[in-house]
Design a protein around this nucleic acid. Structure first.
Lengths: 189, 189
DNA sequence: CGTAGATGCAACAGTGATGTTCCAGTTAAC
DNA sequence: GTTAACTGGAACATCACTGTTGCATCTACG
């Protein structure tokens, strides 16, 4: 893990541009070539290879960025101390914001069990479980609720919320729907 | 659509073997090569190409098979006439059975909007919506429930049920959990 | 048992992605 | 303004996958 000298400003800009173009392309077509990514980013293919040795390195940079964002979201949501329902809303809305901007990278983080992002994912999982446990203790969830299943349902609902015709809604509105569905399902109150 | 002469028995067996091997491999690694698929199926690569001109043709054969199975499931579930709760359980359990055996092909059917399987998918969607509407009319769902969102949640729950540590459970037990979560969420009754 | 069909194997051509190198021109940083 | 870093572009080697053909051998089916 070399302490590489900081990049020059224009190089830094290139990196961002490439990462964003990669996300845009890969979310539509996960098999997009480095060539296509370079073109979409408006740089030469060699520049992409200069910044990211492999396709793998590129994807890892994307996922690392997303994991960092998720950590920030969890920090801001205070799942260990804030009132569970409040934290649930806040975290849901902010995760949705991340997911809307980085659907591909989020998908990788939440499926690839081997990637270096897996550790960060576990960290998020844990804090999420803490929050759900607190929610259960306060009677927000059924006392017999399986927290692991609940967490996975939570993730699945978030994943579903950014699809379909209403993906353009405000993240807060989407979060409302997700949390409501998580707590009450589709049945009558 | 040529009325091709029926395959010989051994050729038919090859086709099945290849389809199953492809499902096994592609569900783990969607980018697996035809070579790898052939090897996993225990046949020569040329045999795969003899039966399926393209990778695309191979995948389409897989999805067509899955769509056929789904149609059967919907027929057996009688979503238009059977009591909604009963149909919901039955259909969920049987879809889970299909999904457990053909996770990759199911994934393609439920994401690729362009494939020829899309028509079959729409058919399933429609019958699913009919069922959910009947469920709502009978008070099983909230009167204000968004049926489209409910359907997507239903799909997402099915997708989640076959993951994780409990994917080995009986389909009926999984279906119980899915339907229960769909109707009541994780909150207290 | 005879034949049409099916398979394995080897070989081949074509394609597209990858990764690297070199160099001339541009740009940020001090 | 000098320098070190960055970029674009062309060129090159490599590689994996794809799709096809021909042929000898085997096997289902009548």
């Amino acid at each position: 893990m070399g302490a590489t000298r900081p990049l020059r400003a224009d190089a830094e800009r290139s990196v961002r541009t490439i990462l964003e173009a990669a996300e845009r392309l890969l979310s539509v077509n996960p098999g997009a070539s480095m060539e296509q990514i370079a073109e979409a980013a408006g740089v030469a293919r060699t520049t992409v290879h200069r910044r990211f040795a492999n396709r793998q390195a590129l994807v890892e940079a994307m996922t690392a960025d997303v994991v960092r964002q998720l950590d920030e979201v969890m920090d801001a949501g205070r799942p260990e101390t804030s009132p569970p329902l409040v934290a649930l809303h806040e975290i849901t809305a902010n995760v949705l914001r991340v997911k809307i901007g980085w659907p591909f990278a989020m998908g990788v983080v939440f499926t690839a069990a081997d990637s270096p992002a897996a550790e960060g994912k576990r960290r998020v999982d844990d804090r999420c479980l803490v929050l759900l446990r607190r929610a259960r203790d306060e009677g927000l969830l059924d006392a017999s609720a399986d927290l692991d299943w609940t967490r996975r349902v939570f993730y699945a609902l978030i994943g579903e919320a950014v699809h379909g015709p209403d993906s353009g809604l405000e993240p807060d509105a989407l979060a409302q729907r997700v949390v409501d569905t998580l707590l009450h399902g589709a049945g009558p109150p």
